[in-house]
Amino acid sequence: MGVTLTEAAAKHVKNFIAKRGRGIGLRIGVRTSGCSGMAYKLEFADVLEADDLPFDSFGVTVLVDPKSLPYIDGMELDYTREGLNEGFKFNNPNVKDACGCGESFQV
């Protein structure tokens, strides 16, 4: 399955990489954190690491490390604006529970 971006998220990532002037894509993973156990980590990738699993979505390369993939496989990353707030929204079918603040999750 892999990890995908919506068209809005891909456009946002492309624009940001263009402003940065460098980058090959977006690296998505998970780390142990928060009150529910896991949190997402996002960073712009400048190089392809040996163990990266690449997925293409609307012309953007999404890189995932093999240890994170079981927790986010099938996830869609969206970029939304709601009123004055805007940001990435993680649509992860593996999440069983999330903390009230929305910063961490359980699978």
Rank of each mutant, 00 (worst) to 15 (best):
Y79I: 00
I17D: 02
E82K: 10
F88Y: 15
L5K: 09
F88K: 08
E43C: 10
R81S: 13
L48E: 09
S36C: 12
R81V: 10
G87F: 13
G23D: 00
G2E: 13
T6A: 08
G23C: 05
S33E: 10
L69Y: 10
K67H: 15
Q106H: 12
L69Q: 13
T6H: 07
F16K: 11
L42I: 05
N15F: 04
I17C: 00
C101W: 01
V13P: 00
A10C: 08
A8S: 09
G21P: 00
L69V: 08
A9T: 02
M38W: 09
D78G: 07
F55Q: 06
G23T: 03
L5I: 09
E49G: 13
K89N: 08
K14A: 01
K11M: 03
G29D: 02
E103L: 04
K11E: 11
L26V: 14
R22L: 07
Y40F: 14
T32W: 00
M38L: 14
E76V: 15
A98F: 05
Q106G: 06
Y40C: 06
V3F: 13
A18Q: 08
K89E: 13
P54H: 01
A10P: 15
F90P: 00
D73E: 15
I72T: 02
I17M: 05
R20Y: 00
E7N: 11
Q106Y: 10
G59T: 03
D65I: 03
M1D: 12
K11C: 02
G87M: 04
C99Q: 10
D65V: 02
S36M: 11
A50K: 14
V47C: 10
L48Y: 09
L84S: 14
F88D: 11
E43D: 14
D73Y: 04
E7L: 08
R31V: 04
K19G: 00
G25R: 01
R81F: 01
L84A: 12
G59D: 05
L5M: 11
E49H: 15
K11G: 07
T4G: 09
A39D: 06
V60E: 12
S57C: 12
E49V: 15
V3C: 12
C101G: 10
S33P: 05
L84H: 04
E86G: 10
S104I: 00
L26Y: 08
C35V: 13
A39P: 15
A8I: 01
L84I: 02
V30T: 08
A18N: 04
V107S: 06
G25P: 09
C35K: 13
V47G: 08
L26M: 14
Y79M: 02
A50N: 07
K14E: 00
V47F: 15
G29N: 04
D97G: 10
E7W: 05
M1I: 09
A8N: 12
V64H: 03
S68N: 01
L77V: 15
V62W: 14
T32G: 07
